[in-house]
Every structure is written in structure tokens, then in C-alpha cells.
Design a protein around this nucleic acid. Structure first.
Lengths: 287, 287
DNA sequence: TCCCAAAGGTCCATAATGTGGATCAAGATT
DNA sequence: AATCTTGATCCACATTATGGACCTTTGGGA
């Protein structure tokens, strides 16, 4: 191993814990379908024995489980328990569940709740609509770089400009590799349009004919807590209906924001050391 | 370090990951109030630098957060996200939320959902009642040895006899230390009574005048998935009312069991290596 | 205001721990 | 039957975690 991070302030170490938790997060991105060892080795940037050893440790604690038949790895019951206990402080989905149900009931289309996680957005929940044609581009657990997708763009647009730039820079490699049509310049444009219109529109950028509208949900201090979004085929997303949908979504977003204000003040400012080297973006050379 | 576990089947190791995740679980037991470094050092059985180093790693990944003012440690947002994603497979609380609301509304008393975690039961949710006198003996995150408390006893009673014995044995030290009135013999008696009556009764065993009734929720295969319970002061728990409450709870338990049956079959059998040395029960000698 | 106790936090020499190339095993595919 | 792919593991090597001793901050008490 070549470089040793400068150790901002003593007591670093526990690197295998960092690796293990990055792996855990990586598994979570695969959602319901789980992931194979090979996928994790490839995308996590760790070699096979190390990956496996960390997976075993995560399984010992119940954070992960492995299907005996398919050999796939899934989030485990301990992860569920911890999350449920943490939801006393971060219960965005609980708070938003009614709104998602309402939106999907009224519009017949599928609605989503997304949040920011590092430089990506993650779909926390997908509420099915009843309309017969539905897009399946977005599922719970799926991740997109911030700015890619309606909810994702709504969140990005709610961030301060300097953070947007930092995020776009960090995401540049991923964007080039996976979304060649969606460069930083395009996203900057989209942010401007979103801010002007007051809502985010994804006109089939990820999957043709799969359009979506996104609206940010704000913390009392103005920072985005997440985003609501509704997806449908393009014919159901013409300008007139866009306005209707946005109006419905605004009502729900206000409700959620009101409830959020009651959730947060459990504690003051929070401290969180930065993780210099998260997995996920394959790191060349290192290990 | 003296003994080295026999290594059931190659590729053990990643012990710091085990320790870190045990710490994480330990923090979760403190619920909303969070925990201090000293508490974690004492109860986790690790020394201060090690504890702190692991806490830093857990914070780097977002699983924990530290309040800058009080220096207390809490579950973090990443824990919430993972749990939310895992709830696609383990959504007992989501499934039970309506029932808890209903129970507390109809009875005016506080109701709880608990589940098994190792040899303890953990309270996943507390649904406040409206009645003016309420017990605060049980909060979300709190843990009791299985058999101690109404919900906890209901779960224990639903387990096969040999598991009950193993659990009672494992919990013996904790019982002696913290619940001197509740030895294995007493709990065995309580299990028999519970099985006969069809519900668990805690007649103020933990806190005087704080009574509770518990009812197990079963998986389709018969194993307990958790338990509902309702707590009130003794005057509201006389035999006549016990019967009323149990009837209400049975209705809700059936509903939850029906929904559970739809949740599980996402996958077949699951593999989970055992963790030979979880923290929490202070281990002498070993660091 | 000063002092002291208690708790949070960190240093660094020691030694235990994790690492990963090579290898085996078991299904799938041709 | 031979080959390929993926899961899983072995074990010599050296990077990494460990924890006693120490420093720092906070909050009483006199």
C-alpha cells in the first residue's frame, strides 16, 4: 500500500470497518434482487477473499443474509431493526407514506420518495400506481448520480451552488461512463430550469418515453430532505397535466415539511467525520 | 489474547468488524437518549481507545452520529436508509403500525411491538395511549432478556422448549444481576401459564403497578415474528378487562399474520453464520 | 476564582490481525 | 467429457489494530 492519508486528527484506523460498511452500502444498492459475490468484488474494488471475509462478518452480525440457493447477498434483519430504531430521528419515509399513497391514488401513476446519499440520490420507496402502463426504471434502493432523474434533479437544484459544483465534479466519471448524454453542462442547465419552474422535469432522459416530475422536500433550515416524484409515459406528462401534478405534489410536500419540523429537533448539530475513500467508484491500484 | 476460536470453517477474521457492529447494536439499545463513550466502554467490554476508534469508523459511514454538544452517540441516517431498504423483506413494523394505532385508540392505553434479537426482546415501537397515567418502563430500543415483560414472555413462550432452555441458560447471568426476582424457574412457570392462557401477563414484575399483556405474532411456519403488548396500571388490568384486551389484540394479531405471509416468500432459506462472541454481556479478561 | 474529579479524547511501541495470489470445488455450458 | 464461470478458501507475509499511559475539557464545589 502506497499512500497513507494524512490523518486529519489522530485515531484513524479501523479500516476494515470502513470497508465492511462500504460493502454493506453497496449491497443495499441492489435492492430486492440482492447481489452476487462477483458483482460486489467488481463494484467494490476489493478482491474476492477480502470481500467474502467482510461479507461473512456482516452476516455474523445479521446486517446481511445470504440466500442458500442463489448465493446472493441481501440486507438482513439486523439492518431492519437498526433502521427502525433510527427512524425515531430520521423518519422521512414514515412521514411521507400517506402522501405517496395519496399521490398515487389521485394520479393513478407511480410515485417515489428519494433522498440524497453522498453524491447520489437513492429511491427509498416506490408507490405503485394503478395505470396499466408503468415505468420500471426506478425501484427502491436504486441509485442515480444527483441530477439524473426527476427527484434526483429536484434535490440537486435545492443545494447551494458550490455544493452542486463539487457534486458534479465528483460524479463526472460516472456520468461519462453511464450517462453519456448527461454531462455536467446539461445538468447545470437542468438545475436552472428547475429553479425557474419550481419543479424538476425529466423528459425521458434515462429511458425513452419515461417522463417524471420531481419536487424537493425541505428541512426547516432550507436544506433538502429528499424529493417526491411521479413517473408516467410521456403522453400522460404533457404541459397541462404537469401543472396539475405539480399542484398535487406541492400540497403533499408542504404536509411533509410541516411534519419534518417536528421530527428533527431531537438534537442539535451533529458531527460526522468524512470518509476519504468510499467504495463504489472502483478505485484503481489501491488494494 | 489467549484462546483462539476453533475456526469452524476457514476464513474467519474481520474481528474489528464484529466488534464495530456489536458496538453499533449496543448504541441502538439506548434509544432516543443516545449513549456516552463511558457507557459504551463499560457495557461493550472494549477499552476506550478501541471503542472510540470503532465509533469513529461507524460515524464515517453514517451509521452513527455524535451530538457535538452532549457528545452522545446516536444511530445515524445511513442506518435509517439501510433499514428502510431492508424493510422490503422485514417490514414487521410497517405491517403492524395500523394495528398499534387501533389498539391504542380503542383501549386508550399504550401499546408496543417487540421482536426477538438474540436472547433478548427489543421494543421496536411504542404507540402512546391517551389515558393520563402511563408507564414509561418500555421505550423503543429498550431490551429485556426474553421472558421479562409481557411481549418478551409471549415471544419466549412461542419458541420450542429446547430453545427456551438455551435462552434461559444464556441469560442466567443477566437475570441474576438485574432481575433477582425473575430466575429461570419463575420464567419457566410463566411460560407454562402463558401457553395455557393463550396470552402473556406481566403483573408488575419489572415496575410495581405497571402491568401488561402480550400476544405473540407468528410467521406462517409457526415461529414467532414478534409480539404485541399493551401496558397500563394494575387497576386497568383486572381479569375482566384482560379478557377484553386480549380479544382486541387477537384480532390485530391475525391481521398482521395475514400480511406477514405475503411479505416473506421473497427468498428461500437463509444462511447466517453465528457470532461466537457478541458484546453486551461484559466479557472478562478478553480486552 | 481556584481546584479537583470525571469524562472525552488521543499517542505510540508492541504484536496480533488482515491481506490477496494461488488454488480448489461445484455447477453451468458446449 | 472437457471447459468455463463463479463461489469459496488456504496460508506466508507485513500492514494494521491494540490498549496502558497520557493529555484536555467540562462542570461542580468551596
Amino acid at each position: 500500500m502506497e499512500q497513507r492519508v494524512a490523518s486529519t486528527s489522530g485515531l484513524s484506523g479501523a479500516q476494515s470497518v470502513d470497508r465492511a460498511l462500504s460493502l454493506l452500502s453497496l449491497v443495499s444498492y441492489f435492492g430486492d434482487q440482492g447481489s452476487t459475490l462477483s458483482e460486489l468484488v467488481e463494484q467494490g474494488g476489493l478482491n474476492k477473499p477480502t470481500t467474502r471475509r467482510l461479507l461473512l462478518a456482516l452476516m455474523r452480525s445479521g446486517m446481511l443474509e445470504q440466500d442458500e440457493m442463489t448465493r446472493r447477498y441481501f440486507l438482513g434483519e439486523e439492518a431492519y431493526i437498526l433502521g427502525t430504531l433510527a427512524s425515531r430521528r430520521y423518519g422521512l419515509l414514515q412521514i411521507s407514506r400517506d402522501s405517496l399513497t395519496t399521490l398515487s391514488a389521485k394520479t393513478e401513476d407511480t410515485s417515489f420518495l428519494s433522498i440524497q446519499r453522498e453524491t447520489s440520490s437513492v429511491c427509498l420507496h416506490r408507490e405503485e400506481g394503478t395505470y396499466q402502463i408503468r415505468t420500471h426504471a426506478l425501484q427502491a434502493g436504486y441509485r442515480h448520480p444527483l441530477g439524473v432523474g426527476a427527484g434526483s434533479l429536484a434535490i440537486l437544484s435545492a443545494l447551494p451552488d458550490e455544493e452542486i459544483e463539487a457534486i458534479l465534479e465528483a460524479n463526472d466519471p460516472v456520468l461519462q461512463a453511464e450517462y453519456p448524454n448527461l454531462g455536467p453542462a446539461q445538468i447545470r442547465d437542468d438545475v436552472a430550469t428547475t429553479r425557474e419552474a419550481g419543479f424538476a422535469l425529466n423528459p425521458g432522459r434515462i429511458l425513452a418515453n419515461s417522463w417524471a416530475i420531481g419536487l424537493a422536500i425541505h428541512h426547516p433550515d432550507g436544506r433538502p430532505a429528499g424529493a417526491l416524484s411521479i413517473a408516467a409515459i410521456d403522453s400522460r406528462m404533457q404541459p397541462a397535466r404537469q401543472i396539475e401534478l405539480v399542484a398535487l405534489m406541492q400540497v403533499e410536500a408542504r404536509k411533509i415539511e410541516a411534519r419534518l419540523a417536528h421530527l428533527q429537533p431531537l438534537n442539535g448539530r451533529i458531527k460526522r467525520p468524512v470518509n476519504p475513500a468510499r467504495l463504489g467508484t472502483k478505485v484503481e491500484g489501491a488494494n
